[in-house]
Structures are given as structure tokens and as C-alpha cells.
Design a binder for these strands. Sequence first.
DNA 1: AGTCCACAGGAAGGGCAGGCGA
DNA 2: TCGCCTGCCCTTCCTGTGGACT
Length: 409
Amino acid sequence: METKQPLQHVQMKDNSTQLKSLFNSYLDSKPLLTNPSALSISYSPTTIPHREKQVEELGRALAPALKGFRPSNVFVYGKCGTGKSLVVRFVTNELQQLARQKVRVIYVNCKMKKTANTEYRLLANIAEQLGKKMPDTGLPTDVMYRTVFDLIDSEEQAVILVIDEIDTLIAKTGDEILYNLTRINQDLKKAKLSLVGITNELGFLEKLEPRVRSSLSEEEFVFPPYNALQLQDILRERAKSAFASDVVGEGVIEKAAALAAQEHGDARRALDLLRVGAEIAERRGDVKINVTHIDASQEKVDYDRVIETIKAQPKQSQLVLMAIVKLSEKEQMIQTGEVFDNYEKMCKEHGMKSLTQRRVSDLIAELDMFGVIQTRVISKGRYGRTRTISLALDNNLKQKISTMLTEAL
DNA sequence: AGTCCACAGGAAGGGCAGGCGA
DNA sequence: TCGCCTGCCCTTCCTGTGGACT
């Protein structure tokens, strides 16, 4: 016992010294990333490479707002990371600055849970941006519509309502809300309302009822994916603002662009790869970012995305995933029935009440949507119709997730 | 050609929590 | 306090499906 205490003391002193030296060397080192926000999604650049045509077309469509006319409703399509939201924000910001009080832009993102993913929340969000705080729940929907209507029509103005990820909202609430919003427009006396819908889903409009479709879409723009060369231009442009000079090594931009181009030309991913690559280089104490940092970055970006998704899931969903992970250790292709049996067993082990197969089926579909697993509906003839499930993760990641879930449950 | 399996997935509604207004 | 409203998670009930089997 007597020998233990001094040992512990020495250990603590060592840690402290170690940490002090780490902090000091961090303080002394020159940061590679001088302006990290330039690589973030929310950054608003002054130029958007390879989107000149889209900026001009959208600008032309919304320009009537400057003269007090109602611009056409607009729909913007394109896969994620193709610059849709960026261009819409850019154009509407410029428009608002030029028009001052005459034009008002309201931006809502329907992917943001608890913010605008239901009819009520969307209306509450609009009301809040127009200056009136509404309760999170409790009021009848017609009261919400009336409030929003009164706020919009309170002065002579052109209101441009940008609904990002509009497909998410419609999938959840139905298209009635879009019909109601276009109807509001007919009753407005002073103000004019235009909608700008942004979606990843190209066939989105076909899903809407004809009466909604006809009232809604007056102009449509498609944003094509970026190719590797275009992504390089984007990265170079952002790198100028983000990094100190001469810290981006040879081939780094090309590598990040090429990796992102493989994923349907996603600029967001390209920026993530570069940002995380820079962070890794900094942490390793390197003075330059090189391609090995981008390789490490790719692994980390994938890992972080999956871990964050899984951590955010409710316990039941984690148990379903755990059942899939355990089954995947024995076989590659798993079926819904097996997952459910395994899940029920695990519920018993953890003293939890199990959900019905119907609900578990939905949880499996959600995990698929998040990209954690891959599923495919197949028919085995006489032996029924089912979904085959496989983990969309490499062995290393699978192992880490298994450990994480075991600790979490 | 008809049957059958093992689900998928849509629709309806229950129960609960949170909030509002009278 | 009570009735009403919403969102959310869930169950129950149901129809649909596609290919192997008879």
C-alpha cells in the first residue's frame, strides 16, 4: 500500500507535464487552417464556380420581386452537394440586399427535425422568422395559417419562401400544405408570396396531386453533379480562404476531388475531406497537408457519419442494429425474420419490451435510409417475400460499432 | 393455373406528452 | 382545471407481392 501512493503521485505529475507540453506545443504551432469556416457547409462564398448559369437563371426568375411583382414559384433539383442551397441562398441574399424592405426571404430546412419537418413546425418556423414566436405545439393548424397569413400580408412586400429538402416534408405530411400555401397567395392583399422548393428527388413533382402540381411549379432548374475537375476548382477557391499559404501539398486537392467525384460529385464531401484532412495533419504536428492525410480523412469522415447517426438513434433502433451486427458475424445476407427473432432475444436479455415486427420493419427501413445497412426486397417464391439486409460497413468499422453498441446498451 | 409463404408496407387509430385558451 | 389541439411512437389490421412449388 505504501509503495502505491507515491507511484500514483508520480503518475499524476507525469500526465500533467505531458499535457502542459502538449498544450504549449499546440500554442506554439502555426495553424494550418486559418479560417476553418471557409470549408464548412454554412460558408457563403462570393463566387460559386461552375454555377454561373444557375445563378443567372434563378436571378432572372426571382428578379420581378424587385419591381413589386410576384416571381414565379421555382423548383430546384439536384443531388446533395451540387450547390442547390448555396445558389438559392446566394441569389436570395443578393436580391434582399438590393431590394431592402421590399423583399423578404424566409428559409426553412425540412430535414431539421423539431424545426420544420411537420406542417405545424413549418408554419411556426415561418411565423418566427417573420417576428412572431409561436408555441412548439398546442395551437390548431388554422390558427397557425391565419397567423402566418397576417404576418405576410402586414405590409407591401414580396415574400420568397425557400423550402429546402421539401421532399422530406411532403413525404411526412402530404402535399396539402403546398396547396394551402399557394392558396394563401390568392387571398393576399398587400404582399406577394413565392415558393422556392429545393429537393434531391428528381421525380418529386410527379408524386404531387395534379391540382397542387399545376399551382406550384412554374419554373424548374436542375443542378447537375460536379465532375472531378470542377470539384478541384471549388476546393482551390475555398482553400485560398481557409489555409495559410503553401500548406496544401501536391495532389491533395486532386485526391479529395477525385474521391468526392466518385460519390456523385458531392462538393460537400470534397470540402469535408479537405477540412478533416487538415485537422488530422494539424493533430499529427505536420506542417503540410499531404495525400495520406486525405486517405485518413476519408476513413474518419465515414466513421464519424456512421457513429453520429447510430448514437442519435433510440435504444430500440440500436437493438435492431445490434441484432443485424451479430447476425452479420455469421452470415452475409440476413433476412427480416431472422433480425426480428434475434432482436426479440436481445430485448429479453436487456429486460426491454420488444416492438412488433411491423415497427421493426420500419426501423430497418430507417437504418437503410441512413446508409448504415443496405437492404433489398426479394421474393423467395414459395418461401415468401422478404428483405435481405447487409451491413454497409467495412470490418474495422463493424467491430468499432459492435463495441460501441455493447457499451451503449 | 392455382396455392402458398413471409413478409412489405399502407391506413387507421390509441396513448402519451406538451401546450393553449376559456 | 378542463377540453382541445398537435407531434410522436407505436400497434393492429389489412392488402399486396412475386416466384417456388404442386
